[in-house]
Write a protein that binds this DNA or RNA. Sequence first.
DNA 1: ATCCTTCCCTAACAAGTGTTTGGTAGGTTA
DNA 2: TAACCTACCAAACACTTGTTAGGGAAGGAT
Lengths: 203, 203
Amino acid sequence: MPTKKKPQVTPSPERRRELLATAAEVFAAQGYNATTVRKIADAAGMLAGSLYYHFDSKESMIDEILSTFLTELWDGYDAVLAAGLGPRETIEALVTESFREIDRHRAAVAIYQKESRHLATQPRFQYLADSQQKFEKAWLGTLERGVADKTFRADLDIRLTYRFVRDTVWVAASWYRPGGQHSPEEIARQYLSMVLDGIALDT
Amino acid sequence: MPTKKKPQVTPSPERRRELLATAAEVFAAQGYNATTVRKIADAAGMLAGSLYYHFDSKESMIDEILSTFLTELWDGYDAVLAAGLGPRETIEALVTESFREIDRHRAAVAIYQKESRHLATQPRFQYLADSQQKFEKAWLGTLERGVADKTFRADLDIRLTYRFVRDTVWVAASWYRPGGQHSPEEIARQYLSMVLDGIALDT
DNA sequence: ATCCTTCCCTAACAAGTGTTTGGTAGGTTA
DNA sequence: TAACCTACCAAACACTTGTTAGGGAAGGAT
């Protein structure tokens, strides 16, 4: 006899995705800890206990939300990094890709922003710390390449620059609304224009 | 007979400030909702109930933390805005002042960043919404003045620029550590250099 | 007609939550 | 010495939290 056996239930993956989407909206709006499973159930039109037919814990919901987001994010990033572009073009592509991800996974990005630092300490969410490190390597490396080949200025602290750029991109998730005035590509264009060339008029 | 009378206790203001400082650290590290009054009490070396000798609720703690921070912030901002500087100098002064505030109130700024959007909906925290509006008026107005007198570029969406600048300044509270390599003024200088002149080398 | 699967409900649980009440040790004042 | 004040503790409260167990309705397959 096997030591343990999960009850033989097979929830449909589509329903899971629906529920995860509404859960992500509530998490993003209220914060993970302030969100009770009853609020999620309310938003989904069911009772709290019924959620446990689809998921085995509240934690596994945010886990699945964040991990699927990061998986898709790195699909895009890896493609950009493998393209062999120059430093400036790489930065442009990464920023554009980032705003596209915000467009597609607004809620997940907002959750990531608020909770990742806190969650990354738990072993279950080790992949958050891993991802953050990979992230830093990709961006910092590109900036360094750019300084080396004189695409970027050499007089700025590159670590500070990295943090500023990174933060500015991702905080956008807190105010961005899909279907608004600006497309992700337009936002990326404006943002890149500011960071690369500055907002001051040359005198 | 008056309808209600608070019990006649007079906690010392200095002790209050001490406790608020430790509470702010815990709030900033764990998030407001994830922080229990027992954790705060632990960090302060006392029991949960004892906190209620000094404060009448957990909510009033974060209230006092945020409101005193905002009061001091606006002292600095108002002084800058009243100085009658040009657009570029005003932006520089506001950014520098902001990083000084982050240096002084790191925990409060981190809390403000994470919880203000959520809290501002409650009547008790109306002043958060008020402050945010005043904030927008000050920054956006300065940027508009700069566009009008050709200090800043006219081809950028000014609202987007405002959001980028605002967010990047305040998110710094999440990674800034007082006593680190860079002084607030140095961070402000580098940040301004990036935003005003861009990171690309002129070709 | 019977069985099985999917999906949700009802009802409860144990642990943890913010908060209150009454008490008390130690210092200051009368 | 007595009265008082400050600052805390001990113990409980009412409530909310995530989670579980058992049941049942609907529909397709046999």
